[in-house]
Design a binder for these strands. Sequence first.
DNA 1: ATGAAAGCGCTAACAA
DNA 2: TTGTTAGCGCTTTCAT
Lengths: 357, 357
Amino acid sequence: MNPTLHDVARVAGVSIKTVSNVVHDHPHVRPTTRDRVIAAIGQLGYQPNLSARGLRSGKTGVIGLAIPSVREAYFAELADSIIVAAEKRGLGVVVDQTNGVRASELDVIAGRRLRLTDGIVFSPVHIGEQDAELLHAQFPLVLLGESVFGGPTDHVTMHNVSSAQAAVEHLLEIGRRRIALIGADDPDETTSVGSAALRVRGYRQALAKAGIAYEPALVRPAGSWHYDTGAAATRALVASGTAFDALFALNDTLAIGALRALDEAGVRVPADAAVIGFDNIDATRFTIPSLSSVDPGREAIAEVAVEMLVERIAEKGAPVPPRRIKPDFHIVRRESTGFAHVVDAVREDATSAARVV
Amino acid sequence: MNPTLHDVARVAGVSIKTVSNVVHDHPHVRPTTRDRVIAAIGQLGYQPNLSARGLRSGKTGVIGLAIPSVREAYFAELADSIIVAAEKRGLGVVVDQTNGVRASELDVIAGRRLRLTDGIVFSPVHIGEQDAELLHAQFPLVLLGESVFGGPTDHVTMHNVSSAQAAVEHLLEIGRRRIALIGADDPDETTSVGSAALRVRGYRQALAKAGIAYEPALVRPAGSWHYDTGAAATRALVASGTAFDALFALNDTLAIGALRALDEAGVRVPADAAVIGFDNIDATRFTIPSLSSVDPGREAIAEVAVEMLVERIAEKGAPVPPRRIKPDFHIVRRESTGFAHVVDAVREDATSAARVV
DNA sequence: ATGAAAGCGCTAACAA
DNA sequence: TTGTTAGCGCTTTCAT
């Protein structure tokens, strides 16, 4: 059995309160007493029982991170950033995967998952504006991702519309006019309330501003946002015979699948079709050609999300009204839209380079 | 305040023992009583307090996963598999990142991290054979990765030597003779005890069997195993002027960086140099060209690791002696070693395809 | 089939 | 400055 406060107290010849005071660095402990207690702790290898502490304090020191899947590159990088931000504050992170299944997402909101946590950072896929009612969670909650307008919870989101618009404007700036998009919501699918619609809106705004007509044939659904669906959507686009000179993929994984499908079809990137993705995942610097992308400020998102969650957890009395934060984004120009490869990654992208171990 | 067993008992007009019996599906509860209790639970929205349960039972229902970084593709996929395997058994997973720092790894072993867990699955980088002494953890522990021969803990490892040998034999089979390797331990670095040495051994065995002399100039260190270090090591290899007609990268991330560097140098893959990686991460099917790799059986590793850990957690009395398990590996042949691209991913690689959402 | 009560290890209010 | 003690919510033993 592990030693307890009582054991330490006995060995040190003091009461458990004194041991507790030492453990918690309380003042008003005589140095000699402190030394004796510390010696006893060392001798016994005492470690506080976190279940007992949790029961007593109502805090576990662990937060939950609910994401579709850590296997998707963007979420892996997000999880990394969240774990780093949490560790800075002495918190552990339990990772829960919803697989984008709405029922699982509702379980997260209802508190039926991730129970041994003080609060949850949640990146939903199928919970949206129409679900504002549901979002009154009984625990500290910070939402990531697309905006649930007017919802009752803190929210760290991205400039989905304006950054997508900026991505398309980048394609327009380099002279492209027939810009395809992959990753749109399937028109048959009624449940989707995610980022897709917002990014498509940005796409349409950019086109409208440039006086280019929206062409439905250029906008392709992809189902989930993975390599294989990106490749499949692109193959379908090519097979359709619709001419295009640029491709906006709604995330980088789709874009990497698209690069592959374009290569198979003999479409040169960027000569025949420029490509831009979204998320700026690590791999974008090493595809062939390297992939231009929208950097949504992932580290800032994670840092802010954890900070807000910690504040909510510490909150007493009247709650602060829900806050909405959108970190800055920027467009990263690489070979897939005609820009030179930068070998020195640090100069190109200080944010991710800083994390390279 | 959340409702407790007492609240439920009061509302249902029974004692807390009876509520507890209902919650735990104990027999010997009269159906009418059970219904009343269930109604009260529903009415109050009762959820057991896991801290209290943990304090009482000594179990938290959470396991720890300690890996270098979830940002690295292989570990992201491993974490996914571990989380899935744990969820099947009703367990949560706290993810801890060691960043491959030895001091952090020692903290994991000493139980100074990941404290609110019932046991830990640990993939160390800098803990090896010479540390067998240290590995007497005071909690259930399952090690992943390179083999700590004779250690006191359960271990799920890979056939590092024989699978690396098989990878090189694959390159030999397609007629390559000057096979470079990137990702070896830096000769100046004395702390490394990871998979690198074992995989290099497999490389040397394959060469020896084929009667090919080992050439140190073909074997390059890369520091950490990332895209950028793979690219840098490959650039250095090319710049050295040492002729080579194949490249074995000790993991896929290195290999993807190598593909990029080879492309920059005008070396065609596989015509001028065939390339094979290790891990068979999702991205390998979508690089240009697609990347041959060693599939180490990640899902089986995760499943077995969690199963062993659960057994250890449940263990009473005399412990079962430490077990060592090595799931099967296999070589996946793709374009980078001259094999045709298979569009239908399901046929090519049933294991990972099964997980595609 | 159900109830009463001890106690898991800790924190913190109160006492000395 | 240090000690005593109640009680967090649950599980479980023992009684009934």
